[in-house]
Amino acid sequence: MAELSDLQRDALGELFNLGVGRAARSLSQIVRDEVHLSAPLVSLVRSSTIATDLLGSEFKELSMVSIRFSGPFDAQAILLFPERNALAIVSHMLDPDLLPEEVSEFEQEAMCEIGNIILNACISALADEFGVEFHGDLPMHHFNTPGALPLFDQDDDQVILVLQIHLAIRQERIKGHLLFLLSVSSLNALLTYVDGYLSRLGMQ
């Protein structure tokens, strides 16, 4: 499997951080309060080991939003939170007088909106810096467990670009992940664009 050089990892972190910043501003408008999204920590893992390598005990029950993007390289982008964290985020978006069971009724719709904002902001940041265009499908929401992730092919021709983030809202800090599922050819295409970006900055 291809590895990220330190320069490539730093460049991807900076590029995705631009998108995360845009997403935080949009989410702040929705909740009418300041939302902070941490600068993402970037890593690359195989899809066949994602459950054991990435998802710890806190991720026993998952709330996921996925969007398929096509363009100069294709990716399935996923926003993933532990189920309890997803409900905490949704509760901040809704009427504070709602009961917990009422909040859960709105989870899928609210998470799709959050995922749409964050995932599109990250892809748009890449598109702007690379001078390319992507097309995204509608967001889809999923519930699952790490041991039965239907979105992952579990084979060696798929790699996952992982962005670990923390979302802070009203003094509550919530851990989640952004995952970008890529074929080997799509990963190579992405890294070619990253290398071109670094060259323009005189760093390659």
Results as ranks from 00 to 15, higher is better:
residue 45 V to G: 03
residue 47 S to P: 02
residue 47 S to M: 00
residue 48 S to F: 08
residue 49 T to S: 06
residue 53 D to P: 06
residue 53 D to G: 02
residue 57 S to L: 10
residue 59 F to Q: 01
residue 60 K to S: 13
residue 61 E to H: 14
residue 63 S to E: 08
residue 64 M to G: 06
residue 67 I to H: 04
residue 67 I to Q: 02
residue 67 I to F: 06
residue 68 R to T: 12
residue 69 F to V: 06
residue 70 S to A: 11
residue 70 S to W: 06
residue 71 G to H: 01
residue 71 G to S: 06
residue 73 F to C: 07
residue 78 I to E: 14
residue 79 L to A: 11
residue 82 P to E: 00
residue 83 E to Q: 14
residue 85 N to L: 03
residue 85 N to Y: 11
residue 85 N to H: 11
residue 87 L to S: 12
residue 90 V to T: 03
residue 90 V to Q: 08
residue 101 E to Q: 07
residue 105 E to A: 12
residue 107 E to S: 10
residue 109 E to P: 07
residue 109 E to Y: 09
residue 110 A to F: 08
residue 110 A to P: 09
residue 111 M to V: 02
residue 114 I to Y: 09
residue 116 N to S: 01
residue 116 N to T: 05
residue 118 I to V: 15
residue 123 I to L: 15
residue 125 A to W: 13
residue 125 A to R: 10
residue 127 A to T: 04
residue 127 A to I: 03
residue 127 A to S: 12
residue 133 E to N: 15
residue 136 G to A: 01
residue 136 G to C: 13
residue 137 D to W: 01
residue 137 D to H: 10
residue 137 D to L: 09
residue 138 L to N: 12
residue 145 T to I: 09
residue 145 T to Q: 15
residue 146 P to H: 02
residue 147 G to I: 01
residue 149 L to R: 13
residue 152 F to T: 02
residue 155 D to I: 00
residue 155 D to S: 01
residue 156 D to K: 00
residue 156 D to R: 01
residue 157 D to A: 02
residue 158 Q to V: 03
residue 158 Q to L: 01
residue 161 L to C: 08
residue 161 L to M: 10
residue 165 I to H: 09
